[in-house]
Simulated scan of single mutants.
Amino acid sequence: MSVTLDSDSNTPSVENPAPVIEPPRARTGRTPKVTTGNFELYGWVFMRVSGIVLVALVIGHLLIQLVLDGGVTKIGFAFVAGRWASPFWMTWDLLMLWLAMLHGANGLRTIINDYAERAKTRFWLKWLLYTATVFTVLLGTLVIFTFDPNIR
C-alpha cells in the first residue's frame, strides 16, 4: 500500500485500500453453539464484581488473622471456635467460601467451553464441575452453620 500526497489539497490519498480479512475459520458441527440471552454477560460482570469483593475479603482475612491476631501459631480449634461464635465472622467466611467457589466454577466453565471440542466432553466436564461446586458449597456452609465447639 502506498500513500501519496495530493498536489491540490496536500492531503494523503490511498492508492491501494487494505484487503478484507476473512475470519480465521468457519463454524463446524464441532464448534459450540453461541448461546442466546445475557447469561455470558452476567457471568462476565459477576467475575469482575466477585473478584474485587474477593480481593477485599482475602486481604482483610489475611491482615486480621495473620498480622493483628498473632500469626498462624495461634490458629487452632479453639481459635476457630472463638471466631465462629460471632455472626460477623461466620458471614465473612461464608461469603468468602461462596464467592470463591462460584468465581472459580464460572472461570472453569469458561475454560471448558473454550477448550473442550466435543459436546459430550463439555457436558461431562461441566456436570463434574457443577457437582463438585455444589457439594463443596453445601458442605462448607453446613460446617460453618453447624460448628459445635463443645465436641467431646
Results as ranks from 00 to 15, higher is better:
Ser2Met: 02
Ser2Cys: 02
Ser7Leu: 05
Asp8Pro: 10
Asp8Phe: 14
Ser9Leu: 09
Asn10Thr: 06
Asn10Val: 05
Asn10Gln: 14
Thr11Asp: 04
Val14Glu: 02
Val14Ile: 09
Val14Ser: 02
Asn16Pro: 03
Ala18Cys: 03
Pro19Tyr: 07
Pro19Thr: 04
Val20Tyr: 11
Pro24Arg: 07
Pro24Met: 06
Ala26Thr: 06
Thr31Ala: 05
Pro32Asp: 08
Pro32Arg: 11
Lys33Arg: 13
Lys33Glu: 15
Thr36Tyr: 14
Asn38Val: 03
Phe39Thr: 10
Phe39Tyr: 10
Tyr42Gly: 02
Trp44Ile: 14
Val45Met: 11
Val45Lys: 09
Val45Glu: 09
Val49Ser: 05
Gly51His: 06
Leu54His: 03
Leu54Glu: 02
Val55Ser: 05
Ala56Trp: 13
Leu57Tyr: 13
Gly60His: 14
Gly60Cys: 09
His61Val: 00
Leu66Val: 00
Leu68Ser: 07
Gly70Ser: 09
Ile75Thr: 01
Gly76Ser: 13
Phe77Ile: 00
Ala78Gly: 11
Phe79Lys: 08
Phe79Leu: 10
Phe79Ala: 08
Val80Met: 14
Ala81Ser: 13
Gly82Pro: 09
Arg83Glu: 01
Ala85Asp: 14
Trp89Met: 09
Met90Leu: 13
Thr91Phe: 14
Trp92Glu: 12
Met96Trp: 03
Met96Pro: 04
Leu97Ile: 04
Leu99Gln: 03
Ala100Tyr: 02
Ala100Glu: 05
Met101Pro: 01
Met101Tyr: 01
Met101Trp: 03
His103Ser: 01
Ala105Trp: 11
Asn106Met: 08
Asn106Cys: 08
Gly107Pro: 11
Leu108Asp: 02
Thr110Ile: 02
Ile112Val: 11
Asp114Trp: 15
Ala116Arg: 03
Arg118Tyr: 15
Arg118Ile: 05
Lys120Ile: 08
Arg122Gly: 04
Phe123Ile: 01
Leu125Pro: 06
Trp127Ile: 03
Trp127Leu: 01
Tyr130Pro: 00
Thr131Phe: 14
Ala132Gly: 10
Ala132Gln: 13
Phe135Arg: 10
Thr136Leu: 12
Val137Met: 13
Val137Lys: 09
Val137Cys: 11
Leu138Val: 12
Leu138His: 07
Gly140Arg: 07
Thr141Arg: 15
Phe145Trp: 15
Phe147Gln: 03
Asp148Phe: 04
Pro149Met: 07
